[in-house]
Nucleic acid binder design. Structure first.
Length: 924
RNA sequence: GCGCAUGUGGCGUAAUUGGUAGCCGCGUUAGACUUAGGAUCUAAUGUCUCAGGACGUGGGGGUUCGAGUCCCUUCAUGCGCACCA
């Protein structure tokens, strides 16, 4: 029998399917293991060879765990809502559901070709009403919740209402948009609308009026993680800041828990660091500064450097700050208005790029609460409205931005740290001793910066001029999108009051066109009868992309449950994801939202683990490797890469399918496109045309896309799987290069020929030799350790070595080959399964075999070879029987003839023997 | 600017975690075979070399009998955050 991957793979796929080999059920007699891939958005382009990298790794791990006796949950589904299908619908009128279904079918077939062990019966799609019912359900649960900071958990909004009824806002420590204070009487006197507005201030899913990222080109708002450098991540369209009423999730309430949770999960340091940055915790103090001559008005500011308060020489307000109007004096009104107008037309992007110092004096003065000094209040856009209180105390001596502002407007600079020279630049280091820091109630002089920060914070709190405060950069997530292809938000408006609509699922209605209405309402405004049965209008916005992906891992545990997101039983068995594999581009999006969503459900006891993903592996991106030809300008003559610098050339992308090892198939090139039909080539004497190459994103336009289907057609799925792993460490990004795949293909064929020579079966029941067992157990040891460490590239190398050794040993032993196949099965499941049946005559599937234990006995050496060095230089080897005592090793080394040369005329000072490793002889 | 990674042959990478740097594969070179292939096999392949060796893990310094690995410093690349007070 020849190795014929096509026959084998189609037969094995049928065998797996017919036998429901990968169906998983709760089985309390076995330990569980949950391996999850980040589910894909099914794009129209299909999978390229880079996409399955992480899937292959997780599949290997799943199969390995199963062989070890774990009950492994390894599902796959589709993140089906998204912009591309909707953009396509706008252009063609094709319903996004149709596009999405087609794309999913294509994805499924491509994934199945690779031979993953998914339990497809548990598959989910975020656009199925049976799935998004639970997305909507969670949203309503958030709508009906507030965050009690004292208990540090979410609680039903009903409890908050009951407390308002009883005592008003007194004693409530809640996460909220703004601090409110009212009595029980005031609460009771409120109208329904006023009560609704008040509660919005506390709900975890709330309608808020805030500055949002508005993308006019996409016609929707975007979350912070969907915007990068002032343009949309999808499409790269400009994004503006705009104040709009939007549904938001109070993610900020969970900032501290999201931060702390990172300490208990196995994620890479860089990813944790990215999340820590994104959450952006800073400890400081909020302080109030009185405005001179205005008893009714205080500025509240946030600072992390309370110790520098004696160096405040001015105050600055963000242009959007609510204080601006209040502090502007009549004399300054015109100047302030002019300034506000001048910055209003500047976009966020322009403000980021152009860091000109601008600002205007408000006319008012604030009084430093510690020194009593009067300082001017300015307005400038270098202060952000969205962070802290939108107002700062400026300490130019020790903050570079304040320093630049002070120099530009010629404001005083007071150094506060001994020896700091602030004549040319500010002094930002947090070291040294304080000077100039004495006021009527507090003296910081002589303290170190660290001591001063602590002392100042303590004083601020005790004297009542402010309080210690922790601020986070993490913003609440904007949760509405003015788009069609997303989950409807289950809210209706009863007399204008947003009210939960709890007949779920609230299904996405049909509309005639996937565009905003003529009156500028979102596409759902086109839906007929988009009201509750009672006639109340339903919300027109839909949910963002991250909604459906925030709890999908829970649904796989119990995907067909109509009564709950996940049953108690299923959740208590599967708990949370033990291994999650996916790209690091989700660090500040999906991976934050999921953790938030999970913690919220945890607060209500819906689930039992407070972190969704115990261990996370970020697979690297596989880039394309593009090839270029070099056309001499204004000709149809192409010059080989080594010679191109002698000519004035233009590089042109060339289809990598007509290039092999960077050598161009010139005939194929002429046939590729009509304009190249009469192309001429200049090459080095006697050599082919050499193409240049570059590592770029894999994309059609660069002609560098490699389709896994083509690879499987030519080499088989096992070779593709092995090769993707062989490419390098899983976390690293690397270019795809089809050239190397032949080596792996050769290995698979070599493996096959261990079992078959033509139609002759080579396997027999002979006793394994010691050599056979040593080769095998070396492999088992290596691969077991590698899989645990997620180091698959070195495993593939180990397979190659083992198969080479067994081949040269002419190993025929069934016992050895059987274990070899089991170890190989996670990597190359088709060929392993095939040989398991047809060469070894085994019943059932290799997936149910037992992972072999390795035995150190077989790995022991009879003798040990050690390197001997003199003063760490120049070496020779000595070989001694295993287990030789150190003194005997020394003696053997010193008696070796090669040692004589080095010892001649010198004395031995020291001999170092490390058992089994090396000997160094120090001579002098 | 702050933070996190990563620097090893022509290329992808490996190194039992401080013990003979370059495993495995690609590519290249030479040879064998031939049903002339995108096939298979064998051998060589870090650099220099006066053929004894010398030099080699981005650069410089240090610890050590011994450093790719640990420490200091510096350079380069990638990623994240960034007028966050």
């Amino acid at each position: 029998m020849e190795y014929n991957h096509k026959d084998i793979e189609s037969r094995i796929h049928k065998f797996w399917n017919d036998g429901d080999i990968y169906k998983v059920e709760i089985d309390s007699s076995r330990p569980k293991f949950y391996v999850l891939d980040m589910f894909p958005y099914p794009s129209g382009a299909g999978l390229h060879v880079g996409h399955p990298l992480g899937y292959i790794a997780s599949d290997i791990f799943s199969r390995y765990k199963r062989l070890q006796g774990f009950n492994v949950l390894h599902p796959m589904g589709f993140d089906a809502y998204g912009l591309p299908a909707e953009q396509y619908a706008i252009q063609t009128g094709q319903h996004p559901e149709v596009t999405t279904r087609h794309n999913i079918e294509r994805y499924c077939s491509q994934l199945n070709n690779i031979g993953f062990c998914y339990d497809w019966s548990r598959s989910i799609r975020t656009c199925d009403p049976g799935f998004y019912k639970w997305t909507q359900w969670a949203f309503l649960k958030m709508f009906n919740s507030w965050y009690d900071r004292s208990a540090d958990r979410a609680k039903p909004i009903g409890e908050l209402i009951a407390r308002f009824e009883e005592k008003g806002s007194e004693g409530i420590n809640a996460a909220c948009s703004k601090e409110l204070a009212f009595s029980a009487g005031e609460w009771r006197a409120m109208s329904d609308k006023e009560k609704s507005d008040t509660l919005m201030n506390y709900r975890l899913a709330y309608l808020g009026n805030s500055m949002v990222n508005w993308c006019p080109k996409l016609g929707t708002v975007l979350a912070n993680d969907e915007v990068s450098e002032g343009v949309s991540v999808r499409g790269g369209y400009p994004v503006e800041q705009k104040e709009m009423w939007q549904w938001c999730l109070r993610v900020s309430a969970y900032a501290e828990r999201l931060l702390r949770g990172l300490d208990n999960i196995e994620w890479s340091d860089s990813l944790k660091e990215t999340q820590r940055n994104w959450i952006g915790r800073s400890e400081g103090a909020e302080m109030r500064f009185k405005i001179d001559g205005r008893d009714d008005l205080e500025l509240e500011i946030f600072t992390t450097r309370a110790d520098t308060v004696f160096g405040v020489t001015f105050m600055v307000l963000a242009p959007e700050s609510k204080y601006v109007d209040l502090v502007t004096t009549p004399e300054q009104r015109a100047a302030v208005d002019e300034y506000l107008a001048s910055i209003r037309h500047r976009t966020e992007r322009e403000r980021m790029i152009d860091k000109r110092v601008t600002g205007v004096f408000s006319g008012s003065y604030a009084i430093n609460p510690l020194s009593g000094k009067k300082v001017p209040v300015w307005i400038s856009d270098y202060v952000l409205a969205g962070y802290g209180t939108g107002a700062i105390m400026a300490v130019p001596a020790h903050d570079s931005r304040d320093y630049a502002f002070a120099r530009h407007f010629d404001l005083p600079v007071i150094p506060l740290i001994e020896g700091a020279d602030v004549s040319e630049q500010c002094f930002e280091a947090k070291e040294g001793r304080m000077i100039n820091s004495e006021g009527p109630t507090l003296n910081l002089n002589g303290l170190t910066v660290k001591e001063a920060i602590a002392a100042a914070k303590k004083h601020v709190e005790e004297s009542g001029i402010g309080r210690v405060k922790v601020n986070y950069r993490l913003r609440d997530a904007i949760f509405s999108r003015q788009r069609y292809w997303g989950e409807p938000i289950p809210i209706c408006y009863v007399d204008g009051i947003p009210t939960a609509y709890d007949k779920l699922p609230l299904e996405l209605p049909e509309i005639d066109k996937y565009l905003p209405t003529e009156t500028g309402e979102p596409p759902l405004g086109r839906a007929k009868n988009w009201t509750t049965p009672e006639g109340f209008p339903l919300e027109l916005n839909t949910m963002p992309g991250f909604a459906g992906s925030s709890a999908y891992y829970l649904r796989y545990m119990d995907p067909h449950n109509a009564d709950a997101l996940v049953s108690k039983e299923a959740n208590e068995y599967w708990r949370s994801v033990d291994l999650y594999v996916g790209g690091s581009e989700h660090a500040t999006g999906h991976l934050i939202y999921s953790r938030f969503w999970n913690k919220f459900l945890y607060d209500y006891g819906v689930i039992v683990d407070d972190e969704p993903f115990r261990k996370l592996i970020n697979q690297g991106m596989i880039q394309g490797r593009s090839n270029f030809v070099y056309r001499i300008k204004d000709t149809n003559t192409f010059v080989s890469a080594p010679l191109k610098d002698n000519y004035d050339t233009t590089p042109i992308h060339v289809d990598i399918n007509i290039v092999k090892n960077d050598i161009l198939d010139t005939d194929a090139f002429r046939a590729w496109r009509p304009e190249f039909a009469d192309a001429e080539f200049i090459t080095e004497e006697g050599k082919g045309y050499v193409c240049g190459y570059a590592v770029e994103k894999m994309s059609k336009s660069m002609f560098n896309v490699v389709n896994p289907d083509d690879m499987i057609e030519r080499y088989g799925a096992d070779t593709l799987r092995l090769y993707e792993m062989f490419l390098g460490p899983i976390e690293q990004s690397k270019p795809w290069d089809t050239n190397g795949i032949d080596g792996v293909f050769r290995f698979v064929k070599k493996l096959w020929s261990l079992f078959w020579k033509g139609d002759t079966l080579l396997v027999d029941d002979s006793e394994p030799t010691r050599e056979n067992l040593k080769s095998l157990h070396k492999l088992i040891k290596k691969v077991t350790a590698d899989i645990e460490a997620f180091s698959f590239n070195t495993s593939v190398a180990a397979f190659m070595i083992c198969v080479n050794e067994l081949a040269s040993q002419k190993c025929r032993s069934r016992a050895v080959l059987e274990e070899l196949l089991v170890v190989l099965a996670p990597f190359a499941p088709h060929v392993a399964e095939e040989l398991w049946h047809n060469a070894l005559g085994k019943e059932g599937t290799i997936c149910d075999a037992r992972w072999p234990e390795f035995s150190e006995d077989y790995l022991k050496e009879d003798s040990v070879t050690m390197a001997v060095s003199f003063n760490g230089k120049a070496r020779f080897n000595i070989t001694v029987p295993a287990g030789t005592a150190n003194d005997d090793v020394q003696a053997a080394a010193l008696a070796d003839p090669a040692a004589a040369k080095w010892l001649d005329g010198k004395t031995v000072r020291k001999v170092i023997v490390v058992p089994g490793k090396i000997v160094n002889i120090v001579v002098g």
